[in-house]
């Protein structure tokens, strides 16, 4: 770029040293890489690598989980599965609460429409 050429070359600026070379090669490199990752060969290779990693690390992960579960059980501490199940139950409870909240909103709206006929107000005041 002409702008760069106007500047005096500074050997102490590490970025300036390869800026022109970089700018020239960058677009071509970017285009090549985009083309590369958009090939079926790349898709197949990454899929196979991911598959191999997941399959090979499986037994190790399973052994680790088993020993951790055993250790936690010996220490009278809840395991990951138990905490997960508890969290799931919490979410179910939250949903039930949300249902009750919805019904309360309906009741409040109905009460408001009774108390001021013709005016159906929203339950603006009932914010969480």
């Amino acid at each position: 770029m002409s702008q760069n050429n106007n500047e005096t070359f500074n050997p102490f600026d590490p970025s300036a040293m390869f800026k022109d070379v970089r700018n020239a090669g960058m677009d071509a490199m970017a285009k090549t890489m985009v083309e590369l990752v958009n090939t079926d060969a790349y898709a197949e290779a990454t899929g196979a690598m991911l598959d191999a990693w997941l399959t090979s690390s499986g037994p190790f992960r399973k052994t680790l989980e088993q020993s951790m579960t055993q250790t936690l059980a010996n220490l009278n501490l809840p395991t990951r599965d138990e905490v997960t199940r508890l969290a799931e139950r919490m979410t179910n409870l939250e949903m039930r609460l949300d249902d009750i909240d919805a019904k309360l909103d309906d009741c409040l709206r109905a009460l408001q429409s009774f108390s001021s006929p013709g005016k159906s107000k929203s339950s603006e005041g009932r914010k969480k």
Binding site: G47, L50, R61
Partner: peptide, 21 residues
């Protein structure tokens, strides 16, 4: 797009990813 190409490849197994992770 890359995502469609990668995920539609037979070698890509989302079920295994979810099963393991």
């Amino acid at each position: 797009g890359g995502f469609t190409r990668w995920t539609s490849n037979a070698a890509f197994n989302p079920d295994l990813i979810v099963e393991k992770l």
